[in-house]
Structure formats: structure tokens, C-alpha cells
Nucleic acid binder design. Structure first.
Lengths: 189, 189
DNA sequence: TAAAAATCTAAACATTTGTTATCGTTTCTT
DNA sequence: AAGAAACGATAACAAATGTTTAGATTTTTA
């Protein structure tokens, strides 16, 4: 759980004792490639922290077409975060893209953190802020960059994404078909 | 400043004295319709709270085309929130859609709140969480609803939007042309 | 209040993007 | 290691969406 410890300690001050208590209520879990961690209609009761591997957040439309909303990799928190916060049934699915090793953080211990930790709300604020920025960045890129620049710039956040994720999922992340992405790659701009 | 007081007190416990100090460092400001509150390339140093009126967040692409990112109305906080948090030059513009009366909350007093208020971080967390949900909802709607349902459902968040906002801005919010929106309206679904 | 500007619809046409199918290659499964 | 499945490129065609223009209203400005 070292990576989670480092991530939390980079954001807030927390005693060893408190951290130990927090972690003792978390759970380590391994998933194989393409497994579903979280399904629509079920109210999410936990946030995942990725120690190793990769996850995508996706939504399946009425016609059964999958649309990728986010990718997440090592040292990121991931969930249907809106549904988690609103205590409502999730809309997104979470699916592993590789064999993935996560820490499961139950809602109960997160809420304990908000109430009992000196800087619990600060941690929550920072995570929410980062996630907001994380969601906002591709929106900005959509309008500020050409398709070619977008194709290149996605590696800034996900250094090796073009080796780790099939192209058709990147296409679905950008709202285009794989065929169209393949065409764009062969253009100059 | 009553509406801001109510909004804050609905989220956290705060003494009269603290609230008074906070508000004394805020500023009330009036803008006419179509005025620009915040421009690209300038690092935003404040968050706006709308007391009366309506604001849109937009991005202008390389070809000069404007894309609406958000609408915001009474009792909402609004800013290029990513840029504000990252202390980076903003990418979005903020523009009034009506004569608008806002409270300007400078970064300095917001940071004072995080440091000095018992529940300052909690307030920041809740605002970030709400804004996240606010940004996530239309993404979910994009895939879960038909265009007709989207046209109707936008009034759930903005009850009178079709009277307050010209249709071509709603079109730009959905990433389509005004002509295309006009066509969609004449379809059944 | 008159002129100017903005708004919405509509039509004709152009362009972009999607769909389907095929093929060679790579990756997975057993 | 062999067969099956997934993947990415490409082409031909179809469908969706954009562009341009015009005209009838409404709203704003002076």
C-alpha cells in the first residue's frame, strides 16, 4: 500500500496511527484484464486506487455502443465519482484494460476520514479538485488542439497509452469511430 | 450578499464573525449583458458567485468559433476553475448573458478560508464536488438521452433557459450548429 | 420610434464522419 | 505451437451534419 501512502502524504499531514487505521479498513484486490469492477445501476460504495494496471470508465448507450469517458492508471483514484458522492446508482462501468491491482477504499472509511482526520476534508477537496481538472483538461484540448495534436498530447498524461490501450478505445474516448481515427492518423495536421 | 450567506451556511458551520470577515473581503459587481468577466491568458484571481443574472463559460477555437462549455445562473459559483486552482492562465472566457450581479471572491480570501476556518476545506470540498457533478451530468446525458430528451432535460437544471439563452448558444453547448439544432427540434424523438 | 442587428427556420448543396466489408497482422487462448 | 479472436488499415458507399444563403420575425440600439 506504499503508493497510496505516498499519494496521501503528498497531499496532507496525517499521523502513522491514523494512516494505519485508515488502511486497515481498505482492501487490496486483483483483477484480470477486461474484468468489470463496477457496473451501472449499482450505487458505488467505494473508490479505487490503482497500484498497478489500467482502468477505463465507460458508458454503454441504448444501442449497446460503449463510450470511453476516462482512462486511469497507476496512482490514480477512480470511480463513478458523481454517483459515489450523490449516493445514486452508477451510470458508468469500470473495466480493467490490463491485469490490475487496486486498493478498495470503502465509503465508510472515507467518511470517517472527513470527520475524524484533521485534514480529511482537505484531502477530499484536493482529490475532487484534481479529478475536476482531470475531467476538464480533455474538454479544453478538444477545442484548443487539432486531432493530430490531441493524438500526441494524450501521452503527456498517459506516457505509454498507445501501447497499453487499443486504438478503438481511444477513438471512443474522443467520440469518433476507429475507422475515422485511423484516417486522421494518416493526415498531416 | 444574503444569497451567498445562505449558500455557505447550507454547506458548513461558520460563525457570524468569520462570515463577516470573509464577506468584507469580497466585492459586489454589476455587469451588463454580453460583458466579459474573465478572459483567456489571464490567470484568474477570483471566483464569482451569481446573485442575479446568467453567465456562460466559453472557449474560442483557432478559427474564432465560440464553444459554450457551461451555463451558470443564480446561486452558482463560476470561474475557469481548473485555471484558478492550478494558478495558470485561463483558457475559457466568462460572459454575461443578461445584466448580471455577482459577488467576486478573491483567491486570497478563499485561501484564508481554507487555512483559518474550521470547515474551510469542507466548503472547498463540497464546492469542488458539486462542480464536478455539474460537469459530469451533461456528459452522462449526452449518451443516455436522445437529442429531444436533452433539449427538454436542460430545463431541469435551468428552468427558464429556453427564454433566457439564444438557441445558437445551446447548440454550441451541445457541439452542433444552430441550423442542426433547429432541424432536431422538428423531429419527433 | 426608426433603423440596425440578432434570431430562427428553411432549402440546396458540400463535407465530414459513420457503416460495412475485406485483408493482413498481432495477440490471446488452449 | 496452432487455431481463434482482436486489431488496425483501407475502400466503397451511406448517412449525418455543416455551410451558405435567404427571408420573416423579434430584439436592441441610437
Amino acid at each position: 500500500m506504499e503508493s497510496l501512502v505516498n499519494t496521501i502524504r503528498a497531499m496532507i499531514a496525517i499521523s502513522d496511527k491514523e494512516l494505519e487505521y485508515f488502511l486497515s479498513h481498505c482492501l487490496e484486490k486483483r483483477f484480470k484484464k477486461n474484468e468489470i469492477l463496477s457496473k451501472p445501476l449499482i450505487t458505488p460504495n467505494e473508490i479505487f486506487f490503482i497500484q498497478k494496471g489500467m482502468i477505463r470508465v465507460l458508458i454503454t448507450d441504448e444501442e449497446g455502443v460503449e463510450h470511453t469517458i476516462h482512462f486511469a492508471q497507476e496512482n490514480q483514484f477512480i470511480a463513478d465519482y458523481s454517483a459515489f458522492m450523490l449516493k445514486r446508482p452508477s451510470v458508468y462501468s469500470l473495466q480493467t484494460l490490463e491485469d490490475t491491482f487496486v486498493i478498495v477504499m470503502p465509503k465508510s472509511i472515507i467518511e470517517w476520514g472527513y470527520q475524524e482526520l484533521q485534514e480529511g476534508d482537505k484531502l477530499g477537496r484536493l482529490i475532487a479538485e484534481y479529478y475536476f481538472i482531470y475531467q476538464d483538461t480533455p474538454i479544453k484540448n478538444m477545442f484548443a488542439l487539432t486531432p493530430k495534436e490531441r493524438y500526441d498530447s494524450i501521452t503527456e498524461v498517459f506516457p505509454n497509452i498507445h501501447n497499453r490501450v487499443p486504438q478503438h478505445m481511444i477513438a471512443s474516448y474522443w467520440g469518433i469511430t476507429p475507422v475515422h481515427l485511423s484516417r486522421l492518423k494518416n493526415q498531416r495536421k
